[in-house]
Design a protein around this nucleic acid. Structure first.
Lengths: 242, 242
DNA sequence: AGGCATTTTTGTCAAAGTGACAAGAAGGTA
DNA sequence: TACCTTCTTGTCACTTTGACAAAAATGCCT
């Protein structure tokens, strides 16, 4: 150890985006296929390095979001998920990545961006099961993002972000069932969301039937924090894991 | 804009620690007084830059924790709080800081570390009210840390981390009251924690009386996730903040 | 020693919330 | 018209909560 004036080490800063949506009543995550090494041809989260040393991190996340997808950035909730900076997670050097979580309503297949040779929605359970080869530590980031979404569904009105501008109560229930991975009783769910004041508000016209009784339409209410929360049935095992 | 091969910009990576404890039934946060510019003589969170480019971020947090305090690092819960990297938050350049949250049982005044001219516990409400001048964006980081602790008290057994190895139910109640900033009914609190299986378990000897009936002693149980959660009364205003 | 203040612990009771389930309402379709 | 499907409104037993009373177990004071 020398006594030279110590200079702090520098790192490369990147952002990664976990973009979740519902397609066909299943949770999907947006992945791109890497066109360059490392992990060439493997699936990865959309993201990239800061443009310049002065770029705001959240702004970079928004920029990547609009670069790699054609989603309406303004209306999307974008929330910091955490930092992933293990040494060795990127063979190119010390790369520290800030992960963001975004929720999008169901949308058509996105068009590929510039960096990505291919981009598309992949079923979340398929990705998390390990069948799909993912670059870097992106599987863990996705797992954290899905878990965050599960928790947020309990305490916030995030579920409406998965839906379009108007939706039926059954569609909202499908969101909860898909993200939580369980089934809920339609009648109890109906009662619960109805009495959670400000969660959803009626939206004029009330028809949306392919078969069966037409459902009423609702839109997201003014409330963002749900109190009392929606209750996820018995998510905890006997010995209460973290 | 040139067409030179683009190289990603680098940033300086730091860690900051929000260390909370209970002293005299009030929530306190550990602050150091900065000995060097910028913000010389102002209060700041303990923390610092990575030692070297290969250092693990969580390891750096643990290192700073043991450097600047004489707490038993092993037993402390240490959780990532978030990334704070606004351009301009540090006049020295582009510094991105990873904040961690730690909870400690009540302890004597820590001895000053090497980088810190002074270190000590400051009441959280005093810090957050704005009376105290803080370096960088550390007031916001502390606010986020306190809010995180409030939420974690609801869903995890974190409250026991504020207590010593054994504690009474009233002491545990004091934790909730101090962190949440409200008062709770002792009888209902007693009933609630008792029937939350695995939260606390009896600890042999049962005496701890200065005045009044001696209280039974407990220790933290095996459960880390509380289900059903402890309920924080009406934290939400009419129009649901966040 | 006896009474009193204090704190812990055990109950009680009405109100609200939850889980399970039946049945009516409002469409399509054979 | 009969039937099938889905949405919506109830019902009921059980649990949990919030507010409060009262008993139990000390120390202190006179």
């Amino acid at each position: 150890m020398t006594d030279d004036p110590w200079v702090p080490p520098v790192v490369l800063l990147a952002v990664d985006l976990v973009i979740l949506t519902l397609r066909d009543s299943r949770l999907h995550v947006l992945l791109v296929r890497r066109g360059v090494d490392p992990y060439k041809d493997a699936f990865a989260l959309p993201g990239g390095f800061l443009n310049h040393a002065g770029e705001d991190i959240t702004a970079a996340a928004h920029r990547e979001l609009s670069e790699e997808t054609d989603l309406d950035v303004e209306t999307l909730s974008l929330e910091q998920l955490g930092v992933y900076g293990d040494p060795g997670r990127d063979p190119r050097g010390r790369v520290v990545s800030v992960a963001y979580l975004a929720i999008a309503p169901s949308l058509p297949e996105p068009t590929a961006g510039t960096d990505a040779a291919d981009a598309g929605w992949q079923p979340a359970d398929h990705v998390l099961s390990g069948d799909l080869q993912l670059a870097f530590d992106h599987r863990r980031i996705i797992a954290d993002g899905v878990e965050r979404a599960r928790v947020k569904l309990e305490h916030s009105a995030l579920a409406t972000a998965f839906c379009g501008p108007t939706f039926t109560i059954t569609e909202l229930q499908n969101v909860y069932e898909a993200v939580w991975g369980i089934r809920l009783d339609p009648r109890n769910f109906y009662r619960k969301v109805q009495k959670t004041e400000g969660f959803i508000v009626p939206a004029g016209t009330a028809r949306k039937a392919v078969t069966g009784r037409p459902a009423r339409l609702y839109r997201a209410g003014p409330r963002t924090v749900l109190y009392p929360p929606m209750i996820r049935p018995a998510p905890v095992s006997i010995e209460g894991g973290e």
